[in-house]
Amino acid sequence: MNYKKIMFAAFAVMLAIGVGSANAGDKLRIGVEGAYPPFSWKEPDGTLKGFDIDIAMMLCAKMDVECELVEQDWDGIIPALLAKKYDAIVASMSITAERKKRVDFTNKYYNTPARFIAANGSGIEVSASGLAGKRVGVQRGTVHQCWVEKAYPDAELVLYGTQEDVFADLASGRIDAQISDSLQGLEGFLNTDAGNGYGFVGGDQDDLECMGEGAGVAVRKGSEDLVQAFNNAIQAIRADGSYEALSMKYFGTDIYGAGS
C-alpha cells in the first residue's frame, strides 16, 4: 500500500535526522511544476532545473532520502498530491489559509513579494480604479488570482495555465498588466529579451489572506512526521549556509525573508 510506503519513508526520514546514520529504502516522490523560471524550468533535454528543484534536492539530501521528481501542471498540482501521485510539493507554493483546508504545509522556505508588471509608459496605476477595466493576466489557481479578485475586482481577470503563457501574452500586448512573484517576474521575464520595454508598476503587493506567509512544502493532511522532517531539513540548510549560497547563486540575494 502507498500509505505504508509513505509512512516508511517518513520513518526513514526521522531515523536519518534523529540518528544520522540510517539510509532510506524507498523513494520520496516530490511534485514540481517545471514552467516557472527561475524557480523551475525544463531544459531542452527534458531535465528539470531551478531554485525549487535544487531546494528539493538539498532537503532530500539533508533528510537522507532518495527523491524522485514528478512533473505536474500547476492547476492540478494539489489534486494530484491528494490523489497520491507524489508525497510532497516543492513548487513555490504560498502558504495560504484557503490551501490549508486541503493540505498541510511546512514552514516557509522563501518569501518574496508579488508585483505588477506592465509596459513602460503604459501609465497604468496600481489601484482599484487604476486597474478598473484593464486586462490583468494571472496564472490560474495562484495567490495572485485570489489577490486580483479580492483587491481589484473591477479589473478584467485573464487566466492562464502557466506563468510562461502570461508573459507571452503580456509581450504580445493581449493583456495590459500581469501580477506574479517579483523575483520570478524579474528573472523569468524582465531580464530576458521578451521583457525589453516592460517594468514593475506599483509597490509590493502583500496580503496575509491571499498571499500567505511565504512559500512552503505542501504535504497531504496528517503527514506530521513528513512535515517535521522537512522543517528540520529547512532549518539545517539555513544553519549550514548552503541555502544562502544557493539563493545567492540564483538571485544575488537571500530570498528567505524576515524571521527565522
Partner: peptide
C-alpha cells in the same frame, strides 16, 4: 478554455483552481 476563454470548461477549471479541487 486553453486560450484564456471562460467557456463551460474554462469556468470548471477556474473553480478547481480557485478552491484547489480536483472534481
Amino acid at each position: 478554455s486553453t486560450i484564456t476563454l471562460q467557456d463551460i470548461m474554462g469556468v470548471g477549471r477556474w473553480l478547481n483552481g480557485r478552491y484547489y479541487l480536483a472534481f
